[in-house]
Amino acid sequence: MSQKKNELRSTAPDNTVHDVGGLDFGNVDMQEHDLAFWERRVDAMIVILANNRGAFKIDAMRRVIESYGEQQYDATTYYEKWCRALRNLLVEQGVISRDELAAKLAESRETMRSASRDVSGDDVPWNEGVWNEETNNS
């Protein structure tokens, strides 16, 4: 049962937004680029929180990233995906609550606005795929 190349992800039988082996996305950009400070921070937090005694395993992070819709998945960068996964998993595991997070975000936005910085008011979608022990007993 061989497959054709270039099969659209939406025609695949299950949730496979990340499962793109064999699809044609053109050449890989091999150019080195600098990481922003927030990207380094996200990386450090994931490394600490996904270790053996941390809040979750790296496999859970992959699961959250794979739960993106195709449009969101393609429109977000590598560390944006990590950052959203970090947020979702900390809430999922009860380390922080959505309310605490919302309060802190509001505070940070206010601080930045009063410093005349550009601040986005948009929230990153939580996604339909946030896993919940009561509703997902597989």
Binding site: Q3, D14, T16, D19, G21, R63, E66, S138
Partner: peptide, 18 residues
């Protein structure tokens, strides 16, 4: 195995059934 993935899956589509 060519079973569908239920959630997080470590067997990519292009090898299933192969």
């Amino acid at each position: 195995d060519s079973r569908p993935a239920l959630g997080h899956c470590r067997a990519p589509l292009f090898i299933r059934g192969q």
